[in-house]
Amino acid sequence: MLTGVIEFRIDRRSGVSTYMQIIQQAKQAMRLGLLHPGDRLPSAREVVEATAVNPNTVLKAYRELEREGLVEARRGLGTFVTKSLSSAATAGDDAPLRQELSGWMGRARRGGLVVEDVDALYSAVRDEHYPAEEQA
């Protein structure tokens, strides 16, 4: 039996609901190529054992992912990833865009920028290219 390949980290002080955190982390794992089609998401019980969240919330988040067509619940077996969100552009350490960003980040550090500076720059540029409506 294949066990879950990812683990959710629930941050209780983030202000983001558990439900949203699960959805976001699942999607991120798919984007980064950590989850491939056919992989099983951790069962509600496994998530609960690891994070002490409400299993109903986990199942609700999975239902939302299913509604978006990303996963599929198979009765008695679990919830499986059906779609890939990763592409050559995002998956793996050697993806070209990642390499470029990594190079930029290295220059920022050598230039004496601290984490807050980098985050501010990154979000400002991101918001220029991706207006608010698209992010929702």
Binding site: R45, A52, P55
Partner: peptide, 13 residues
């Protein structure tokens, strides 16, 4: 945390 885990596991199971 332990206690919530126990209760929530019961809910899951």
């Amino acid at each position: 945390d332990e206690t919530l885990r126990v209760i929530m596991t019961d809910v899951a199971d």
